[in-house]
């Protein structure tokens, strides 16, 4: 399945958001959004991905 992950195109086997995180090596404290909508961590396991989905995975960063 072709998706866009953090702005870059990816071809992945994952069917759900939690599988995607595992496949792409994300661990620790991250938050996710799919197609510009927040997906809570508890819902990642049931969140099915579709071709062309835009996934954002963010983490803590310096800020002011």
């Amino acid at each position: 399945m072709k998706i866009v992950l953090n702005g870059a195109p990816h071809d992945v086997c994952a069917q759900t958001l939690s599988e995607l995180l595992e496949e792409c090596g994300f661990s620790g404290r991250v938050a996710t959004a799919v197609n510009e909508s927040f997906v809570a961590s508890s819902l990642r396991i049931s969140h099915k991905l579709a071709d062309g989905d835009r996934v954002e995975v963010v983490a803590p960063m310096q800020g002011g």
Binding site: A31, A59, Q62, G63
Partner: peptide
């Protein structure tokens, strides 16, 4: 401490630990 969120590139977890 004011902080933010950015696309995870590997540095986020270390920063979180420090904060």
């Amino acid at each position: 401490a004011a902080v933010s969120l950015r696309r995870e590139s590997g540095a986020g977890q270390t920063f979180w630990q420090m904060i």
